[in-house]
């Protein structure tokens, strides 16, 4: 199993690295554009194929542990980069996205998880896949939004104008917020079926609520026409709250009472 993962991860990272190299060269030689895109996309397709394969041998969706969710991020984040390039003609985001994907794969390579087929009864529900997938895609978009915002901050510090970049970070945050809301409500509806109540201020729920509030605050500040360039800082930092919610919660003192810790100790 792990041997396979190592191979796939390395192949995917090589694809992204070569894709990056070729697309930088493509600035001078436009003919390289297509092979560059095929290679970069290929990295994500390898990951997607690995997830499908992993799913079939696990007999359950590989969405239970943090390591398993990182596989999905690695496959999906570069796709957001490609979409933004296609939609807004912004090229640089995909490099950050591929680097982030490679970073997630490295975490998994350095900390291989125990291969475990079991799925506790609480997770055996039709809500499992929609709840987690909606959150995954939401986090992916917000990660991309935060990376864009950081890039915008960097450009500001070098006194370069960048309206397009600010609208990209904004719309990625908007889409991410919509998905966070769905994830939160799907989670509440599922909790009612599985644990009896839709909201119990479990630490994971509290942090999910906090992340949602952070982006709710951003959208209102944006609406109120607060200086957009200052809001790039806010967006870049909001992702920190999401990161705590995603895997930081397990390390907090409050996690002792959480029903949401599915990763192995």
């Amino acid at each position: 199993m792990i041997v396979n993962f190592t191979t796939v991860a390395i192949v995917a990272m090589v694809c992204w690295a070569l894709g990056t190299l070729l697309s930088i060269l493509a600035r001078r030689t436009p003919a390289l554009k297509i092979p560059a895109f095929v290679l970069s996309l290929g990295g994500s397709l390898f990951m997607a194929a690995f997830i499908a394969f992993y799913w079939s041998i696990l007999d359950r969706p590989p969405l239970r542990t943090l390591g398993e969710t990182r596989l999905w991020y690695a496959a999906l984040i570069p796709l957001v980069g490609f979409l933004v390039e296609y939609r807004w003609k912004i090229e640089w985001l995909k490099y950050y996205c591929m680097a982030l994907a490679a970073f997630f794969l490295c975490i998994n390579l350095l900390h291989p998880e125990v291969f475990d087929k079991t799925l506790m009864p609480a997770l055996q529900s039709p809500w499992f896949i929609p709840h987690v997938i909606v959150y995954l895609v939401g986090y992916v978009l917000l990660a991309a939004s935060s990376v864009t915002a950081l890039h915008n901050v960097y450009l500001q510090l070098r006194h370069k104008g960048n309206d397009n970049g600010e609208s990209v970070s904004h719309y990625l945050a908007l889409l991410g917020f919509v998905l966070l809301s769905f994830g939160l409500i799907f989670g509440a509806l599922w909790a009612k079926e599985a644990w009896g109540h839709y909201w119990t201020w479990d630490p994971k729920e509290t942090w999910a609520f906090l992340s949602w509030l952070a982006y709710l605050g951003y959208l209102h500040a944006w609406r109120y026409k607060i200086d957009r360039s200052k809001l790039q800082w806010y967006l870049a930092l909001s992702f920190v709250v999401l990161l705590v919610c995603w895997f930081g919660v397990n390390y907090l003192p409050s996690a002792a009472n959480s029903v949401h810790t599915y990763s192995q100790s």
Partner: peptide, 25 residues
């Protein structure tokens, strides 16, 4: 208005942060 709304969102977030860090028991 939005200014008070934002400040209250911030206050609720801050109080939730306490609840998200300190064990509620």
């Amino acid at each position: 208005g939005i200014p008070l709304g934002l400040c209250l969102i911030f206050a609720i977030a801050l109080l939730s942060l306490i609840g998200g860090v300190v064990p509620q028991e």
